[in-house]
Each structure stands twice: as C-alpha cells, then as structure tokens.
Design a protein around this nucleic acid. Structure first.
Length: 337
DNA sequence: TAGGCCATCTGGTCCT
DNA sequence: AGGACCAGATGGCCTA
C-alpha cells in the first residue's frame, strides 16, 4: 500500500531542510492534537465509569433492542446507523486529525518530488522557484525536446531548443528560461509571416558565429517577451510546427521509432546519454540539462533542422566532441544560477 | 487590490 | 476499518 520514494535525503536542498523543520513542528502539533483528543476520550470514559469498549458494547446492545425507528415503524434491514455518541465523535475527530497529518505528509512528499523535478529541468534556481504547474510543463517540454533529439539524432540550435522548452509556459517562466540562457526573449518572437526572428546573444556566440539575419536583428536590451503591443499571445505551437513540420508536444507525445535508450540520470540529477563513446570524450559528457547547444550554421527556422536522414548514425553525431569541459561548466552555470 | 500560488483541511471514494 | 488518493474550499502570502 505504501509506496516509498527512493532515498532523496542526499539531495535535500535548503528549502527542503526548511520545510522539514516546519514539518517537524507540524507533526508535534498534530501529536498534541491527537493527545488532547485522547485525553478527552479518557476523561469522558472516567466520568461515566465505563471503558470505551464497554461503551461500544452497551450502545450496540441498545441498538439491538431498538427495533423501531423514530416513527414507530419496524426497523428496516441493512446497515444500521450508529448513534453519534460523544465518544464516537471524539474518535472521529482523532481519525480526522491523523488523516490530516497523513495528507500533509503525502503532499510534502509530492512537493519533495516536485523539488527534485525542478532540479533536473533547465533553469533551476534556488531563489526563483518555478511554480508547480510551470515545473510540470517545463519538464514535459524538456522530456519531449530530449526525446526529439534522441529520435532525430542531431542537436538543434540553442534557440530552437529553448523555444521547445518554453512552449505553453507562462510569460514569466519564458522570460526566466530566456534569462537563464542569456537569450533575448524577443528572439523567440516570430514575424507576422511566421518567419523566425532570431538574433540571439547567447553564450554560444562566443564560440560559433551568430546567425546571419541582419534584417531581423533586434536591438539588444529587450529581455522580456512583450506581447502587449500585438495584443496577441505568442503561440509557440505555431512556431514549432513551422520549424519542424511535426506535431508539437502540446498536441501529442513523441513517437519513438527505435530502441533508443532513454536518457539516464547521473548523481546530480542531470540527464546524460547512455553511450559508451562518451568515455572516449571524457567524463560522461552531459547533455540536455547541461545542454551544450551549438547553433546550426544555417539560418534559424531552416526546416531541415530536424529532418536528418533517419539512418544517421546516432549517437555518433551526438557527441559534442569539440566542446571543452570548461565550456560545459560555463553552460552549467548558465542553466543553474 | 486583484490575482496567482500555496498549504492545509475536509469529505468522498476506492482498495486492501 | 483504515489508509491512500483525490478534488473542492478556504485562508494566507506575495507581487504587479
């Protein structure tokens, strides 16, 4: 019946520790409540000089004798309604208090699991926590994006990756993700014609040449999505489909076509790929969360981005061989402020 | 001050 | 009977 989670104590965060402290206080309060209820029952039993068991038996005997209902009609068959005596009410109260404590604990477990989920999705921040719903949405997008990478066998560019992550997320969360990646969130905006607007000033620009889209470039310093001017909410779903000609994660789950190994988690809760070659390139290169996206050399929005031949040799294309571990650290720092 | 988010309480349902 | 799970209600806190 009880399903215990795996031992998460080793990854307990400050917030979890704080919550644990609060929890312990609550447990003490609950214990006091139960104790007081129990005392009431005992005192009640003393007053009437009968034990609760005797009380119950007595009640049942009385109920057996009570063959007529309040209208004087013969008693119907079926489960009898037990009288709500004081002692029974107190018992119900105790059960309720205990049930509340269990429910609280259950919700705490759920929140702990959510905290752990927050740690393995991009943009984990101790100071600015994602809400529950946003965490779930981002996690879903993240899984979907990684699945797409596995399915296609090639890295998308950073901007595309972030766009996928942000589908369906609220504007503040989108801004947060953009901020984490030091991307200008405006670069997510698509032109009216559905053309991608991109000019990202990302950490990767220092390694790879930026996209060449001078006609679409946006002045720097606009760090937030601003849909108020158009009056229309930005629809990432459309953007996505214009890129990939595929269903968006908002619509369907990815179709796995091959026996790909799912991403595994390392001790940090970071996704990494199960691949033997990784050893050749040093120390389990992490992907995904520590996504070391490299902008494609072509223009963003190039629909061939995810349309590689399906017989491409995954995971060989997958290695980020040219990336240094130092760069990985830098990117990790970006994702985990 | 309204709205979002959250924790908690509560009663109902299902299952063991 | 009792525990797990769920969803609705409620009130507190925070922020734009």
């Amino acid at each position: 019946m009880l399903t215990l989670p795996f031992d998460e104590s080793v990854v307990m965060t400050e917030s979890q520790l704080c919550r644990k402290y609060v929890r312990e206080n609550e447990e003490q309060k609950t214990a006091k409540k139960v104790e007081s209820c129990a005392k009431q029952i005992v005192s009640h039993g003393k007053n009437i000089k009968r034990t609760p068991e005797e009380e119950t038996e007595q009640e049942e005997e009385e109920e057996d004798k009570d063959e007529e209902d309040e209208n004087g009609l013969p008693r119907r068959r079926g489960p009898r309604k037990k009288k709500m005596t004081k002692i029974r009410i107190e018992r119900i109260k105790i059960r309720r208090v205990e049930a509340n404590a269990r429910e609280r604990g259950r919700m705490h477990g759920l929140n702990d699991a959510l905290d752990n989920l927050r740690k393995v999705v991009p943009c984990y921040s101790k100071t600015q926590k994602l809400s529950k719903i946003e965490t779930l949405r981002l996690a879903k997008n993240y899984i979907w994006a990684l699945s797409e990478i596995l399915r296609i066998g090639k890295r998308p560019d950073l901007l595309t990756f972030v766009q996928n992550l942000c589908k369906g997320l609220s504007q503040p969360t989108t801004n947060l993700v953009a901020g984490c990646l030091q991307l200008n969130a405006r670069s997510f905006l698509m032109g009216q014609s559905g053309e991608a607007v991109h000019h990202s000033r990302s950490p990767y620009n220092s390694i790879y040449p930026p996209y060449h889209s001078p006609e679409l470039s946006t002045p720097p310093g606009h760090g937030s999505l601003d849909n108020s001017k158009t009056g229309k909410p930005y629809n990432y779903c459309n953007a996505y489909e214009s890129f990939y000609e595929s269903t968006s994660p908002e619509c369907t789950s990815p179709q796995f076509e091959g026996p790909l190994s799912p991403p595994s988690m390392n001790y940090n809760g970071i996704f990494s790929l199960k691949q033997e070659e990784a050893l050749d390139y040093g120390k389990n290169y992490n992907y995904g969360m520590h996504y070391c996206a490299v902008p494609g050399r072509g223009p963003l929005g190039q629909s061939s981005m995810f349309r590689l031949p399906t017989d491409s040799h995954f995971p060989y294309d997958f290695h980020l061989r040219s990336q240094s571990l130092a760069m990985q650290d830098e990117l990790n720092a970006v994702f985990h402020n």
